[in-house]
Design a protein around this nucleic acid. Structure first.
Length: 109
DNA sequence: ACGTTGACGGATT
DNA sequence: TAATCCGCCAACG
C-alpha cells in the first residue's frame, strides 16, 4: 500500500479530530501522529482552517496543553473547553486529566 | 514556477 | 533554562 500525500491527508486528520470525545483534548502533534503523519503538526492547522466550524477545533491545543490560538479566539476556545468540562492549570489545559488516549496509538512517553 | 506562511513540535546548541 | 534550527507539507501571493 502506498502512502498518499494528497488531500486524503486532511481527510484523515479531520476524521481523527472528530474522534476526540467531549471533555478531552489532544495536541497538534498527537493528532498528526494518530492520523498517521508523525511530525506534521502544521498540516493539522491547515486542516482546521479548511474545515473550521465543522470540527471540534477547540479540542486541539498546543504541546503541554497550551492554547496557541491568539486573541479572542483563544479566550473563546478556553471558554468552550471549560464548558465541556476541561480543567485548566493556569493558561494550560490540565493534560494529566484531559489528554485524549488514542486507542492503540498512544506514545508512551 | 517560486518563495512565504502557518493555531507546531522536538532536538540541538 | 532559554534561544535557535529544522522538518512537516498544503495553500497563497
Amino acid at each position: 500500500m502506498k502512502e498518499q500525500t494528497n488531500s486524503s491527508m486532511f481527510t484523515r486528520i479531520r476524521a481523527t479530530i472528530r474522534k476526540i470525545p467531549r471533555g478531552k483534548v489532544a495536541t497538534y502533534g498527537d493528532v498528526a501522529y494518530a492520523a498517521g503523519f508523525p511530525g506534521a503538526a502544521r498540516q493539522v492547522v491547515w486542516a482546521l482552517h479548511g474545515s473550521g466550524g465543522i470540527l471540534p477545533w477547540q479540542r486541539v491545543v498546543g504541546a503541554g496543553g497550551k492554547i496557541l490560538l491568539p486573541g479572542v479566539k483563544g479566550a473563546e476556545q478556553r471558554f468552550i473547553l471549560q464548558t465541556e468540562g476541561v480543567a485548566f492549570s493556569g493558561l494550560r489545559v490540565d493534560m494529566k486529566q484531559h489528554r485524549y488516549a488514542w486507542p492503540r496509538f498512544r506514545k508512551t512517553r
